[in-house]
Amino acid sequence: MASLRDIKSRITSTKKTKQITKAMQMVSAAKLNRAEMNAKSFVPYMEKIQEVVGSIANGSSGGSHPMLESREVKKTGYVVITSDRGLAGAYNSSVLRHVYRTINERHNSTDEYAIIVAGKVGLSFFKKRGMPVVESIVGLSDQPAFADIKDIASRTVGMFEDGAFDELYLYYNHYVSAIQQDLTERKLLPLTDIETGGGKSLASYEYEPSEEEILEILLPQYAESLIYGALLDAKAAEHASRMTAMRSATDNADDLIGDLTLSYNRARQASITQELTEIVSGAAALE
């Protein structure tokens, strides 16, 4: 049996760990609130741009643009969104495992794909395995502004336009609720399935100067905003996932402290009993 002092020090250290996990849980809860609000304030923009893109892309005049057409796939791009820090449960591992498996199934050589990654965890994961990471962004704030990711988003979209790759997939954790985050795979480019904003009757627009030129500006902006939307969603999921992970860590620490306290008391009792027996038997020997 462990000595009294050993048990005592284990209790103290578990208590300290619990304090940390509890604090992290509360911080994540606050950040989750903010992230949810950010995701919400992005919705009007997304809806509007989707509506306009939808009405142009599905318009009778049928404007065409390279970003709307599927072409022969020689190289595939993968955008993977992970977090900078760990301690978020299965948040990173579920995305990374899925992407890793998908890539290994689809491709035989590293020339056939390229990875664009957000977050330190993902970056080191792919680097370690010698997979080609063409763009990466780390150190994003918990409340990213559009300007923060504008550069990398437009470079990514630019690579598609230049033909560096012929399709682009997006992988991230979609925030469903505080206890549920779903791994989401989305084909970003080419834009073959544009939703038209809930089947509202669409106005037929005049285009100034021309449909092609509008698409030229609108589609990259749309694709960039899709990436930004995914990032906001992923941030909310990250905080939710961290909050849940930290809550269960706190609960576990509570259980552990309970068990340890019990065995501490048992050990204490045993030592007292032993001392008493020794005193009594010592007294008996003197008589």
Binding site: F42, Y45, F146, E208
Partner: peptide, 27 residues
């Protein structure tokens, strides 16, 4: 009129005349 950005709506209101500079000229 409403002005929306990815970071949220910036302005909502009413106006009698809206004047913008488009690529093809002032509107």
């Amino acid at each position: 009129v409403s002005v929306v950005t990815p970071d949220g709506p910036v302005y909502e209101g009413e106006a009698e005349l809206v004047s913008v500079k488009a690529k093809s000229g002032e509107l």
